[in-house]
Amino acid sequence: SEEKKKAKERLERLGASSELARELLDRANGNAEKAERLLRKLL
Rank of each mutant, 00 (worst) to 15 (best):
G30V: 02
E33D: 12
R13L: 11
E3K: 10
N29M: 09
R37D: 12
K6N: 10
G30H: 05
S1F: 12
N31Y: 04
K5H: 09
R37K: 09
E2G: 09
L11N: 00
G30C: 07
L14Y: 04
R27Y: 10
E23I: 15
A21F: 05
A28P: 00
L25Y: 05
L14C: 06
G15W: 04
A32T: 07
L42N: 01
L38I: 08
K34N: 08
N31F: 04
R22G: 09
L43T: 04
R13P: 01
A21Q: 02
K41W: 15
R37Y: 11
K6L: 12
E12C: 14
S17M: 03
L24T: 01
G30I: 02
K5E: 12
R13G: 07
K6R: 13
L43N: 04
N31D: 15
E19H: 11
R22F: 08
A16V: 06
G30T: 01
E9W: 05
E36D: 02
A32S: 08
K8G: 07
A21P: 00
L11K: 01
L14Q: 05
R22Y: 09
K41H: 12
S18G: 07
A21E: 01
E3L: 11
E12I: 15
L43A: 04
E3T: 10
K34R: 12
R13Y: 09
D26F: 13
R27I: 12
K6E: 10
R40K: 08
A35L: 06
E33G: 07
L38F: 06
L14G: 02
L20H: 02
R27W: 14
A21M: 04
R10S: 05
K4N: 14
R22C: 13
R10V: 06
R40I: 10
E36H: 05
E9K: 09
E3F: 08
L43V: 05
A16Y: 02
L43E: 02
R22P: 00
L38G: 01
A7I: 11
L20Y: 03
R22Q: 15
L42K: 05
A16D: 01
R13E: 09
R10W: 12
N29R: 10
K34Q: 14
L24Q: 01
L43D: 02
A32I: 15
R22V: 13
K8F: 15
E9V: 07
E9T: 08
S17G: 05
A7F: 09
R37M: 14
N31I: 05
E19P: 04
L38Q: 05
E2A: 12
S17P: 05
E9F: 05
A35D: 00
E36T: 06
E19D: 11
E9L: 10
K34M: 15
K5R: 13
E36W: 08
K5S: 11
K34S: 08
K8Q: 15
D26P: 00
A7D: 07
L42H: 05
E23S: 10
A28T: 14
L39I: 00
E12P: 02
R40Q: 08
R27P: 00
K6S: 11
